[in-house]
Amino acid sequence: MKPRHSALAEPPIVRIALTTLALLFLAFFLGLPLLSVFAEAFAAGVPAYLRALADPEARSAVILTVIVALGVLPLNIVFGVAAAWVIAKFEFRGKAALITLIDLPFAVSPVVAGLVFVLIFGAQGLFGPWLMAHDIKIIFALPGIVLATLFVTFPFIARELIPLMQAQGREEEEAAISLGASGWQMLWRVTLPNIKWGLLYGVILANARAMGEFGAVSVVSGHIRGETNTLPLHVEILYNEYNQVGAFAAASVLAMLALVTLLAKTAVEWRMRRETAMLSAELSPERVPAPASGRTAGATHPSAERP
C-alpha cells in the first residue's frame, strides 16, 4: 500500500507505532503492578506465602471482609431495583435531580464518606453520647464499616439497572398485569428475569468495591486487629510494619479477587451484549432473520408458516 492511499487508514508504520505506544503505557501502568503483586507475595517462596495467609489475623480479616460484603450487597440490590424501577418506568418531576443524587457518592472522597459517619455516631458525634450511654458501638465496629461501605457502593447497582430498564420499556410489565399478574408476580416472573444480567453486573462491581474499600473503612474501623480489620486494612498494617511478604500475600488475595471480577464482568458484558442485540432484533423483527434453527424448522412446516 502506498502512503498516498492513507487518507482512509493510517500507514502501517503509524499503526504499529501507536499500538506499541499504547501497549507500553498499559504494560507499565497496569501489567507491571499486577505482576509485581504476585512477585512480591512469592518473593520469600511458597511456604512463606502460605504461612502468611494462614495467619489468624489474615483469616479474620478475610472473614470480616466477606461479612461486610454480604451485609452490604442485599441492601444495595433492593435499593438498586427500587430506584431503577421508579426512574425507568415512571415519569415524575425531579427525576434528573434524583439521578444526580444517586450518583453523588461516586464524587465524594471515601475519606469524607467515612468521616460523615464518625460525625454522627462517633464519640464526639451527634448521637455519640447517647450511643455510649446505651453501650452501642457503631464507629470502630462492624456497623460503622457496613455503613461506610454502603455509602461508597451506593450507586453501583442502580446505575447499571436504570439504562437497562429504560431500554426494555414498560410493555412486558403491562402485559403481565393485563394477564392478571399481581405486582409481586410481575416482579418475580417478568422484571427480575429480564434484568438478571444487569443486576449481576452491578453486583460484581459493587462487590469488588465493597471488598476492596480502603479510605472510608479506614476512617471508621479503628484498626482493631482481628476484630475490625478488613483485608485491605490488614494489608496496610502489615505493609507499615515492613512485613512485605505478609502484606503482599494478603494483597495477592485481593488482586485475585480483582482478576475474578474482571473475568466475571467480561463474561456478563458479553452476555448482555447478546441480549441487547436480541432486544433490538425484537423491535424490528422482520429485518433480522430468526436463528438458523428457526429457519430449518420453518422449512419442515411450510404450511404452518403461512396460515
Binding site: S36, E40, L205, G212, P232, F248, T266
Partner: peptide, 24 residues
C-alpha cells in the same frame, strides 16, 4: 485480554495499588 485489563484500576483495591506502586 488487554481490553478487559483496562478496568483493573476499578477492580483492584486501592490499598493494593498503593503498596504495589510504592514498591515498584
Amino acid at each position: 485480554f488487554v481490553d478487559a485489563l483496562v478496568d483493573l484500576p476499578f477492580a483492584l483495591p486501592t490499598a493494593v495499588a498503593g503498596i504495589t506502586l510504592a514498591t515498584l
